[in-house]
Structure formats: structure tokens, C-alpha cells
Design a binder for these strands. Structure first.
Lengths: 255, 255
DNA sequence: TTAAAACTATGAACGTCATACACAGTACGC
DNA sequence: GCGTACTGTGTATGACGTTCATAGTTTTAA
């Protein structure tokens, strides 16, 4: 039986494999141009501004013309999620730990720069050329550590996840939600203060104590850079421990 | 100056503080009933089925009546994200590590049970009674470890993030996207196989090698339970290292 | 007991959006 | 040069979130 497996058609286009056509007018557009326009809108107005009509207007065609290049708006978002990724950092002779730290931080910074990515990135497994390049570089940095391929992928997944959730949290606490600003909550300190007033110390003993002790207040407050490094080091320490364990187990191709 | 800080009105209602009214007809509904109906719909049909009209129909009022209890659909989603959380697991005399392992796994399983939560959970900082109860229990489990409150919160955040991204990944790879099934990609193994066919070994050396080596294939494939435990242990090992470090530094309240 | 006040739910209406479909125009193959 | 296959357009549709004026209901005050 012939293999039925293929890439979804958007993904095919993300890899530059636009269908070869012989007859008919030359296409005026291509997926990359459409995606770039959509990203510009998202950067300027957020995801809410990205309507098919708005994107089409920006590239100079009617709204329905986009459906020649994309099967649905979902497809467009998928393409955006990949195209928005810049090139991953260069290894430059760094150790795996140094490199993965930079890799994760850059990853997070990209998400903070483009908060709309947060709403899109988690939904689809990475299949585009840019995101997979990031994955490749993470795996490459772990060459010679003794981890097997599956473990390397898991490590990269965990770091990706950390970048994503840290960015989501920072964004949410620091002005991501207009309702918070309306309520006068402008940052982590306010957030903690309000919570401290609401929590019943009997049902929330540990949390209300933490809030009252001012864990969210001051210069060493919540969600500054130190907190990012903190969580990142948690993961990297765990990875380092694993690598050391593998090294002790012997370097053979064991089970 | 009087403190302007307050909770957004939905959040106020999530805490049971519905506004006290004296005159006029008794409200037929409350936020909890609306939220419960919305959750039932989301469980049955996914987030796409949750329209204001559908929710209103389920509780037996006109669509516009909901706006007496909620300022926007966003508000409703926020309330759903909190109400969907069950009670956190009980400590039952477990060590912090045992407890946080159960806590994180349960957290992830909830997200897999209700994939629609994935699209909602990351957007807003937890401010509702249920989600904060989870946070409280995580902090409580770290009592006596020598970590300060800020560190405890960071630990809980990192674990929350891990639960979230692991669930998102499992969901995405295993049937979360109808486009994948259309393309004949039914699981991680197919995913790996297709990628192996697309990747150019020169630009993606590490990744294409991993795919060709079959890292995603077979019983020890991608995204089974072992992979969840793998990443979780990474984090827990890191936390354990931190706790040990703190214990050595001395038990005083020093910086 | 009555009148005003305050609040609830309703129905109709609006603007926006994603998308389907039939059509007109265009370039290539024969 | 004719047919074919493909591209972009215009129109239309149905769903959705939300606004607003209104009718109806319960409580307060006289």
C-alpha cells in the first residue's frame, strides 16, 4: 500500500513547496508574503487585528483571494508561528549549558516581544523550517553528553516549555490583561497586595502567609530577570545531574 | 488617598462576592451556574461550542442576559479556567518531592482531560479560589525546606508551566489537530517519519539524525508517560539540589 | 396602600468576521 | 487560435459578540 502520509498542505507551503502550476495566470502572492503581512499586523495591533480582510488589504487583494494559499485562518496562524521565529543563536564554542541558557532566554525574549505568539505557539507541534532549526541547534548542543536522541528531545521540550510559560506569566502579570489595569493592578506588587486582602488564612495558610510577608514586593519582586534565571537553573541543574549519571553508567550503547 | 486597587469584577464574583442588591427582581442566575453550563459545553464540544448564545440557552435565558453577570466573553473564560480546577491532592504525609510529583501529574492530567483549558489557562494570572488553592498546597509542601517564599512561588510556577506545556505537546501530537489526521499523521511515530523525509541533513544535522534513528518510533516512543516523568524528574532534581544548597548555606534568615 | 426607584431579562438590531460559490479574466499547451 | 486550468473578485450567508431601549418585577419610602 502506498504511504498515505504527507504534510498538511500549509506545512508543505511553509517549506517553500508551493504547488507547481503550468496553466493560468501567475499567482500574485505566495504564503511567505501573506504570512509576513499578517505578522506585521499582529505586531502592531495584536492578534485581534489579524482578520482575513485586514491581511488581504495589506497585500493588496480581496479577502477571499487568500484562500488560494491557505485553507483556513488556522493555517495562516500556523504559518505565522513558524515565520515569526528568527534564527537560533550560534553555538560559538559554548558548552551545552551555556548554549542552552542563551537558547532558552532568547526564546523567551522573542515571546515577550511578540505576545501574540503566546496564543499560537502552544497549539501545534513544530513542523516548520524555523522552529525545527531551533530544535536542531538544541539537540546539536547536547552532542557528546551521552544522552540518547529521545532524551535530547525531551530536554529541548522542557526548555521550550519553560520559555513559553515564563513569558506567559510575565506578560499576564505585567499588563497583559486590560482588566487588571482597570482594577488598578499594575504589576506583581499590586497583585500580591490585592491577593493578601482576599485570602482567608485558614483555607490558604501558606499562600496568604507568603503574600503578607511581601514575597511579591520590592526590588527583588516577582517576575524580574532573577526569577527567570532561577527556574532556568532548576532545569539546567536537573539536566546536568542526568548527564553526570549517564556518564557514570558507562558509555556503551546499553539499553 | 484611598486605595484604588480592587479585583476585576469577574474575579470578585468568582470569590462568591456577588453584588448585594436590595431593589428589583431576584437574579435568576449567578456566575457559578453560568460557568458550570459553559464548562459542560466545553467538555462536550470544545471551546468552539462555547458561544454566549449556547451558554445562555443551556441555563435558560436569552443570550444578552449573561451580560448582567459578566462584562464580556473573556470574563466568562476566566471564570471557567478557575472553576474547572478540582481540589488539589491531599498531602497525606508525603515528602515535598512525592507531593509535588503527584501535584504536577494531577495538574497535567486535568489539562489532558479538558484540552480547552490549554487555550485559556496561560492567558491570565491565577486569581480565583480554586487555582490559588493549588498554589497554596504547593507552597505548603515546601515548608521546612529552607526556601524563602519567593523561591517557593518560583518552584510552583515552574511546575505549573511544565504541566501545561507537557499537556499541550501530548495533545498536539496525539490528535489535537484535525489537519494532522487528514494528512495521515496519527501519532508521534508518523510525525517523526514525515519529518525525516523533509529535513535536509545539511541544515538540520542533529535533528534529521535523530529522526532517522527512530527516536520517535516504537514502544519507547515520544510522549508516553515515561517522557513526562523524565522531564518532571529534571525539575525535581534541580529543586532538590537547590534545597540542599540552602541547607548547607546555614539556616539563618540571611540573604 | 400607593408611588417611585432600582434592578432584571428580553428582543431587535448592528457590525464584524470567516468562508462558500459562481464568475470573469489570464496564461499556457496543443 | 482554441480549450483548459488556474487566479483574483464580488456577492452572499450564517454565526457571533455586544449595545440599547423597553417591559416587567420587586423593594423602599411615603
Amino acid at each position: 500500500m502506498a504511504q498515505e502520509r504527507a504534510l498538511p498542505s500549509v506545512v508543505e507551503r511553509m517549506w517553500g513547496r508551493e504547488p507547481v502550476t503550468r496553466r493560468g495566470p501567475r499567482p500574485r502572492l505566495n504564503l511567505a508574503a501573506i504570512t509576513a503581512a499578517a505578522i506585521e499586523i499582529a505586531d502592531a495591533e495584536g492578534l485581534a487585528g489579524v482578520s482575513m480582510a485586514a491581511v488581504a488589504a495589506r497585500v493588496g487583494v480581496a479577502a477571499t483571494a487568500l484562500y488560494r494559499y491557505v485553507e483556513s485562518k488556522e493555517d495562516l496562524l500556523t504559518a505565522m508561528a513558524d515565520a515569526a521565529a528568527p534564527l537560533p543563536p550560534e553555538p560559538e564554542g559554548r558548552t551545552w549549558r551555556e548554549y542552552l541558557a542563551v537558547w532558552t532566554r532568547t526564546h523567551r525574549d522573542i515571546l515577550l516581544d511578540r505576545p501574540w505568539l503566546l496564543s499560537v505557539a502552544g497549539s501545534v507541534p513544530p513542523m516548520g523550517p524555523r522552529r525545527l532549526l531551533w530544535l536542531d541547534r538544541a539537540l546539536a548542543s547536547l552532542d557528546g553528553t551521552g544522552l540518547d536522541d529521545g532524551e535530547k528531545i525531551n530536554v529541548a521540550s522542557a526548555l521550550t516549555g519553560y520559555a513559553l510559560t515564563d513569558a506567559a506569566l510575565v506578560h499576564a502579570v505585567a499588563g497583559g490583561d486590560p482588566r487588571m489595569e482597570e482594577a488598578g493592578i499594575k504589576g506583581a506588587a499590586d497583585y500580591g497586595e490585592v491577593l493578601a486582602g482576599v485570602l482567608d488564612p485558614e483555607t490558604y495558610p501558606a499562600l496568604s502567609a507568603a503574600m503578607r510577608s511581601g514575597a511579591m514586593r520590592g526590588a527583588e519582586g516577582w517576575m524580574d530577570d532573577g526569577d527567570f534565571v532561577f527556574g532556568l537553573d532548576l532545569l539546567l541543574d536537573g539536566i546536568e545531574a542526568l548527564i553526570r549519571r549517564r556518564a557514570l553508567e558507562g558509555h556503551g550503547g546499553g539499553e
